[in-house]
């Protein structure tokens, strides 16, 4: 039986008087891939950042495992993020002063794991980055940076992996690499949540939702 890893209960989010999310209920279980689609400006990225504990909802509950973390302190949230979440942001968000390998190992370093180098090299090699381990991000193309960001998200094998527009601006070949890596993570037990405009990617997921007017509609 698949275990529920993250659950959102009646999440509301507003910025001042502007309501963005108006009562979102959502669950993601281990080993599943979920797509969230919707028009630009509907609040998909906001929803993903609330799901990823990067910002707090105006109201509502967030259950990670059994624990409601909606009112948890910042320090505890940081620990949960480091231990349980992998992120693939809309843009690569690499640290410019670090090499490819160091960027890949950032999450491991923050979680206090020092023996992840071999694994990071393996993942980077599988993504075709073995010759660029000592490169700085400024020496890489956008496609290569996205692969490093993907490696960083995958290296810790976290419970939950959140990907924001992972195939945006990528050529078909690279898009295929990113997609297959995300689905492989799902097969390995990670709950993968993907925010995307890419219809073909959304169609491959186990479950699809559409965000419209601040409400999440179950598509399939």
């Amino acid at each position: 039986m698949k275990k529920t890893l993250i659950e959102l209960k009646n999440i509301h989010k507003s910025f001042g008087k502007i309501g963005i999310l108006g009562g979102i209920d959502f669950t993601a279980a281990s080993g599943t891939t979920t797509a969230i689609t919707g028009k630009s400006g509907e609040g998909k990225t906001t929803l993903l950042s609330i799901m990823g504990l990067l910002q707090k909802p105006t109201s509502g509950g967030i259950l990670i495992g059994e624990k409601n973390v909606a009112d948890t302190g910042i320090a505890e949230l940081s620990k949960i993020r480091a231990a349980r979440f992998g992120y693939l942001f809309q843009t690569s968000r690499l640290v410019g002063s670090l090499t490819v390998l160091e960027n890949t190992l950032v999450c491991a370093a923050l979680a206090g794991k020092s023996n992840m180098r071999k694994k990071a090299v393996t993942i980077l090699t599988s993504l075709g980055m073995s010759k660029h381990l000592d490169y700085k991000p400024e020496q890489l193309s956008i496609g290569q940076m996205r692969r490093v960001a993907l490696a960083r998200a995958l290296v810790m094998e976290t419970d939950i992996l959140l990907a924001d527009e992972p195939t945006n601006d990528l050529d078909p070949a690279l898009s295929q690499i990113v997609t297959s890596s995300l689905f492989k993570a799902g097969e390995n037990g990670t709950a993968v949540v993907i925010v995307t405009h890419d219809r073909s990617l959304a169609a491959k997921t186990d479950c699809e939702y559409k965000l419209t007017d601040g409400i999440l509609h179950h598509v399939r």
Partner: peptide, 18 residues
């Protein structure tokens, strides 16, 4: 200048103390 870098660390799970 490195504001965004620290933002990345925070997002990826670095505590304020770190």
């Amino acid at each position: 200048h490195r504001r965004s870098e620290y933002g990345i660390y925070l997002a990826l799970g670095a505590s304020r103390c770190k």
